[in-house]
Simulated scan of single mutants.
Amino acid sequence: MWKSIFDFSFDIYYISLVLNIFLFSGAVFLRKYLFAPILFYLITGLLTEHITILILNNDLLFFGQQTNAPVKVIYDLIQFLTISYFFKRSLNYQWLNKWYVLLMVLLILIAIAPYLLTPSDIAFHNPWISFITIPVLLFLSTLYFLQLLRQKKGYAYINIGLFLILGSSMVRDSTSPFYEGVPMEIYRMKGFLLLIPLIMMQFLFTYECFLFFKSRKEFSIKSQ
């Protein structure tokens, strides 16, 4: 039962992900450059899904093993860079603009330190990067919520979607060791529960793009 539910939910997520890539590409083409980090984040998610499928089908191996741990490391780093840059562009805090590059370099060095010390560890899942990067992104998301309350303008739906997925990712990475050796049905149920915030995020992103295109259309009509 859970396999069918998971497969159906994944199809919804995949279709909405591809749709949002097209929508955000259109927005960036129309010079909404603030959406560019989110577009890159979505493309990274799509590539990660395809690489993971290749790994599951034994068409791609890392270090002779069927593991997506190296892909997860790259995905976590790109997630951190793209989302943090979106918040850097969106938040009106001088200290963030002033210290952004230094903070990013420092946090990335801390995040990848275990792999620099022991390169072979990249073949194994380790929640260390998530524990370093996700709390920072959640903090920036919270700051953006506060800014939205003050200014009454911004991209609330994108922020809600990011907050949902970041929180669920933190829970997923924290609890993953407890799912080793569990029955496949339990694992699929967990996968379905993790897909729910992903699907919600995609729907929220779609709605934010809809609002952007609607505002452009209304502006174009008023300008005529």
Rank of each mutant, 00 (worst) to 15 (best):
153 K>H: 06
155 Y>K: 09
156 A>K: 11
156 A>D: 06
156 A>H: 03
157 Y>T: 06
157 Y>I: 02
157 Y>M: 14
159 N>W: 00
160 I>Q: 00
160 I>T: 03
162 L>H: 00
162 L>I: 07
162 L>E: 01
162 L>V: 01
165 I>W: 03
165 I>T: 13
165 I>C: 08
165 I>E: 05
166 L>S: 07
167 G>C: 02
168 S>P: 04
170 M>Q: 09
171 V>Y: 10
171 V>D: 04
172 R>G: 10
172 R>W: 08
173 D>Y: 11
175 T>P: 00
175 T>G: 02
175 T>D: 09
176 S>L: 13
177 P>L: 00
178 F>A: 12
178 F>T: 14
179 Y>W: 15
179 Y>G: 14
182 V>Y: 09
185 E>M: 15
185 E>V: 14
187 Y>P: 12
189 M>V: 05
189 M>N: 10
190 K>S: 11
192 F>A: 12
192 F>R: 01
193 L>F: 10
193 L>V: 10
195 L>M: 13
195 L>V: 06
197 P>G: 06
198 L>N: 12
198 L>F: 01
199 I>F: 05
199 I>T: 15
200 M>F: 11
202 Q>M: 14
203 F>I: 15
203 F>H: 04
204 L>E: 01
204 L>S: 02
204 L>K: 02
204 L>T: 00
205 F>E: 01
208 E>N: 09
208 E>T: 05
210 F>R: 14
210 F>L: 15
211 L>W: 02
212 F>E: 10
212 F>I: 14
212 F>R: 04
213 F>G: 03
215 S>P: 07
217 K>C: 08
218 E>W: 07
